[in-house]
Simulated assay, not measured.
Amino acid sequence: METKTRFIETATRLFAERGYYGVSIAAVANELALTKQALLHHFGSKEKLYGEVLQTISNRLMEDMSRIVQASENPREGFEACLMYFYDALQSRPDDTLVLMRELLDNKQRAENAKTWYLKPFLDSLCDMALAASPKRLKNQAQAFVVVYQILGAMKYFLVSEPTLVQMFGSKNWKAFTEHYEPELRALIAARLD
């Protein structure tokens, strides 16, 4: 595995577990068996390392979305396929899910000073896709954004709740929940487009 990739994956895991404010450059360096100075040499600051984590997640999502859209027969099929891909990606990469949730929830102080919004292109693309998928229902970018955000929020909230719901209801019930979730998610997407 490439060195930078290993650094970013380790940082992603730590930011997912502890949030932006709970992770220091020293903690990431320690996990990687590096000195703090060696890690700073690669990224310059904790903010830049965190930016690389967000950029990596965004790039992966954008590349996969582009591939899915190109393979789709129409805008609606492409939009639905991208959302279902995103749901699968969040399941298979739980650290990404937590980082994205923490970015929304823990970002109050940093938001005022942010110069780059790494996930904005991803959200903009999904909004454009929603508009193309449902031009009769969605009349403007604001409506499309709300629909996209509701659907993404439903996915992320469900997936980050797994540890609590497993403890609360048991593994067998969680398995049943997940079996029923995907068809309900598809129904939610269809309802928001019709």
Rank of each mutant, 00 (worst) to 15 (best):
Y157Q: 05
N59Y: 14
K136H: 13
T56M: 09
W117I: 08
I8K: 09
N173C: 04
T3R: 14
A81R: 03
E31T: 08
E103M: 08
Y87N: 05
P75G: 11
E179L: 09
E77S: 03
S171N: 11
T10I: 00
K156S: 11
P121G: 15
K156I: 12
A190F: 02
S24D: 05
F145I: 07
R6C: 12
R6I: 15
L54Y: 06
K46H: 13
A11P: 04
A11C: 07
V23F: 01
I68W: 04
D124Q: 10
N74Y: 03
I151W: 06
T178V: 13
P135V: 10
E182T: 06
Q150D: 07
T12N: 01
R93T: 05
E31M: 12
F7T: 06
Y50K: 10
V23N: 06
C127V: 15
M168L: 14
D194S: 08
Y85R: 08
L185H: 04
A187Q: 10
M1K: 12
Y87F: 09
P94G: 05
F169V: 01
K48L: 11
R13Q: 09
L34S: 03
R102Y: 02
T97D: 02
R137K: 14
L98G: 00
M84S: 00
N30T: 09
A142V: 15
A89I: 01
N74V: 00
A89E: 05
Q167G: 14
S45Y: 09
S66Y: 05
S125F: 10
Q150R: 07
K115C: 04
E103S: 01
F177D: 01
V28N: 07
S171Y: 06
M1N: 11
S24T: 14
A33H: 10
R186G: 10
E17T: 02
E52I: 00
S58P: 13
A11F: 13
G44D: 11
S72K: 12
V28W: 00
Y87E: 09
A187L: 09
D88H: 01
L40M: 14
S161I: 09
G170L: 12
E182L: 06
M1R: 14
P183W: 06
D124H: 06
V166Y: 05
K4T: 10
K156F: 03
C82Y: 00
N140G: 10
R60A: 12
T116I: 13
Q37T: 15
Q150A: 03
H41M: 11
L152P: 04
F177P: 07
A190I: 04
L131A: 05
L126P: 13
R186L: 04
S45P: 10
V23C: 15
S66P: 00
